[in-house]
């Protein structure tokens, strides 16, 4: 299968702190890849290295075989990597539709002259992106809310608006940073199905940072576990669940043995 994103020995250092330490990551096309790990493990930092917010001190980030580290974020977005944020970051004082319309920016061909003269092709393009943005809002379940200011939308709607804005970039790779944070179980389930739909309908590869293990184990094709900036495990959900290092990272040293014992007792009971 074709590889969409490849990170080779990526390291990011803040002062004396190695936030991401020689991480390798290979994401095949059409996969839903999850990155998990305890708080402060470097997950978001890795995201920032991929989406161009940070330039890693060492290592390469390849998108469809092209090196992208060091590129400005708008160029990265134009190449086809879109992302959402852990703490929602919308353009708060713009309406929801406008938020999505900004997402079309990398694909617009207008200039200030054409906007000034309102040439027919400019008008056609504008009409097109208004239609597309409305359709995207409909797709994420926000039909009819488009003219509200982003800051007036409820929390769950803001999360989905962020995804709509990212989809407007027409990405090939979508980075979702804790898309279900702060949601109740029903909303989380809906979001989980929605993520799978994005992948299936739009054929977008997805990398996910997520804390909710039910989501992660349910939809991931591949899970990478970070701890203290290092990748300590990788594999499909089953492998990760059984990996003693992962359990140790989450629950502390000695936990793996305990959990093994617990499981044995449980099977014994059954």
């Amino acid at each position: 299968m074709k590889t969409v994103l490849e990170a080779r020995q990526v390291s990011k250092i803040f002062g004396g702190l190695v936030a991401v330490n020689k991480v390798d990551l290979v994401v095949p096309e059409g996969a839903i890849a999850s990155i998990i790990g305890p708080n402060g493990a470097g997950k978001t930092t890795l995201f920032n290295c991929i989406s161009g917010f940070y330039t890693p001190e060492l290592g390469d980030v390849l998108f469809n075989g092209r090196k992208i580290q060091g590129m400005l974020t708008d160029k990265v977005a134009a190449m086809g990597i879109a992302r959402t944020y852990q703490n929602i970051r919308l353009f708060k004082n713009m309406s929801a539709v406008e938020n999505v319309m900004v997402g079309f920016e990398p694909h617009l061909k207008h200039g200030w002259m054409k906007a000034m003269l309102k040439t027919p092709d400019y008008q056609k393009e504008q009409k097109h992106i208004i239609n597309e943005a409305s359709r995207l809002l409909h797709y994420v379940g926000l039909a009819g809310l488009g003219d509200n200011l982003a800051l007036n939308l409820p929390y769950g709607a803001q999360r989905r608006l962020e995804i709509a804005r990212a989809l407007a970039n027409q990405p090939k790779l979508l980075l979702l940073d804790e898309p279900t944070a702060g949601m109740n179980p029903q909303e989380t389930d809906a979001m989980k199905d929605f993520i799978r739909h994005i992948r299936d309908d739009l054929e977008i590869t997805i990398i996910l940072i997520e804390h909710d293990m039910r989501v992660v184990m349910n939809i991931s094709d591949q899970i990478s576990v970070l701890d203290y900036g290092q990748k300590i495990a990788e594999g499909n959900p089953k492998e990760i669940q059984a990996n003693p290092r992962v359990i140790e990272a989450y629950l502390g040293p000695g936990a793996a043995a305990l959990s093994e014992k617990y499981r044995r007792e449980k099977t014994h009971d059954a």
Partner: peptide
């Protein structure tokens, strides 16, 4: 080493 690694942006 640092410079050669981060050349694109840092031109």
């Amino acid at each position: 080493k640092k410079f050669s690694l981060t050349l694109p942006q840092n031109s």
